[in-house]
Design a protein around this nucleic acid. Sequence first.
DNA 1: TTGAAAGCGGTACCAC
DNA 2: GTGGTACCGCTTTCAA
Lengths: 323, 323
Amino acid sequence: MSNLDQIAKLAGFSKATVSRVLNKSPHVSQETRSKILKIMQELDYVPNRNAISLSKGQTLQIGIITSTINEIVLAFLNSFVEVAGQYEFQTIIYTSGEDKKKELQAFEDLKRKRVDALVIISCVNDTDLLSTYCKYGPIVSWQRMDHTDIRSVAMDQYEGYMLALKHLIQKGYTRIANAFGRPSSINTHSRQRAYAYIMEQHNLPVLQHWNQSSIYNIRDGEQVVRDLLQYRDEFPQAILCSNDYVAVGILCEARRQLLSVPEDLAIVGFDNTELSHTMGITTVQNPIEAQAQNAFYMLSPQLVGRQMELQPLQYSLIERTTT
Amino acid sequence: MSNLDQIAKLAGFSKATVSRVLNKSPHVSQETRSKILKIMQELDYVPNRNAISLSKGQTLQIGIITSTINEIVLAFLNSFVEVAGQYEFQTIIYTSGEDKKKELQAFEDLKRKRVDALVIISCVNDTDLLSTYCKYGPIVSWQRMDHTDIRSVAMDQYEGYMLALKHLIQKGYTRIANAFGRPSSINTHSRQRAYAYIMEQHNLPVLQHWNQSSIYNIRDGEQVVRDLLQYRDEFPQAILCSNDYVAVGILCEARRQLLSVPEDLAIVGFDNTELSHTMGITTVQNPIEAQAQNAFYMLSPQLVGRQMELQPLQYSLIERTTT
DNA sequence: TTGAAAGCGGTACCAC
DNA sequence: GTGGTACCGCTTTCAA
């Protein structure tokens, strides 16, 4: 492998001049430039990115942290990789598997200058601890954070959940259950607030086993149906899900249990993923791609020195056949 | 940010000794070590990864190339990130969006020493061109390659497809259609060979419109059903799919069209993903996780200087309710 | 327009 | 066990 020095020697110029050519500096004469370019071509030269990173103190790499890559994360990840790539930034995946130590390595890598910035999709460490890393580079989060140092691109799911609740009530459903996600998450709290508010406002019943938590995926959704069926007399008319995959699980299991949807059980998903469309699940449209792009835009002032305008975000209800 | 030099000065030792402490060299006295470690702690010192990479000529980063991150890729990606992480390697995503230039950047990054190795999930460039990059580092592929320089971890889908075909025939289905993926791919060719062989052996009919290509995802699957319905009289009894997502699309659309499954149409997926389980789709179990792990193991001789034993791979048929 | 040289922050070989 | 020092390969300031 050839390096700058060799190119410089062969061309009869200094490293500085060769570097100028590489960086398209205007302060190089035309003939010098073409002579150097020719030699680079001949030697099949490409600059070493580690050397550049070390010298510039910038890697053009962004770390993205998630416990695991699942279907929900997919849309965000794709969209983020895409927009970051447009600005020459690469994306490194850090999967923690909910392990605090492993997750922390991503933050250490920010400190160690392996990445220029971090995006949190989900994290398990204490936010007070994580925010101490802000001094090493910009950090944004998709997951809502209870800490002011780390900004979040997510929307308040209170609004989205309200849409779903109002839709159900308007349709005449009164016995409404919830399949929440992480019990301690801000999203879950928002949803619980919306639920409590609406239920009280309409003077509707709230049973304890209608509030299930830690329901994340298809399998969990299937289990929810089986659990609810144990209380035959208190079976809900409708169920709101933490995401579309949970809704899919509930729908499939409901059918297996010979419940007809939406007559015996109405289902509302969340996110409006491809799958909810295919399976005809009523859901709340969540602009995930836009949030991923906003994540990059929020980093951009420190990354590319330019403030970028965030896209407006809005929920909407997509009515399909499960309500 | 502090660096080696500062630590050395403050501790009253040389950079070399500090470096030894960092790298856990045994040739440092206990008190020197603890003294240096104490100072590192006080200054909150961590070594700069770019400097290490430059000096060692190794980044501990592996690039993974795919046109887009979809559900099929998910299992592979998760598994690969996991196993690579166990050996301290990080994974960088390169999504090409089928753009040859963009895809080539990943290979240039191998040359430029941004990554130590590459894993191809899918690629669009000419394999002759890509194999010229082998001299810069190890490259393996999940997608089957027609080039000997780049080894593939994938299995020959001929075997898997045979399982599915034999299953259908044993069940008494004779009018069998195919939803193939990329027309030019080696996998598709393997499947076509298996199909042709079985059909001829059993003297079964083969209609041209029973062989659909470029069917990749749920939407494509839905479309397949609508297309096939145009030939009412020549509607197949069963259909084999390029993957489980196509099968899901076909299943959902078939139900919407009031076809009963498997009576009017039997469906066999491929891969045995979570979703096929949930929806009760008969499928071919494809050990994707093991292939991802093997991908790392195939890189390992050049990456960690150790030959690792590849896991044996085997297809099996998972019979569920769609056949 | 060009060059010399001092970084960037480590590693690793060779002395002692 | 420890230190001196030449790398690794590129950027950037200052002079000329």
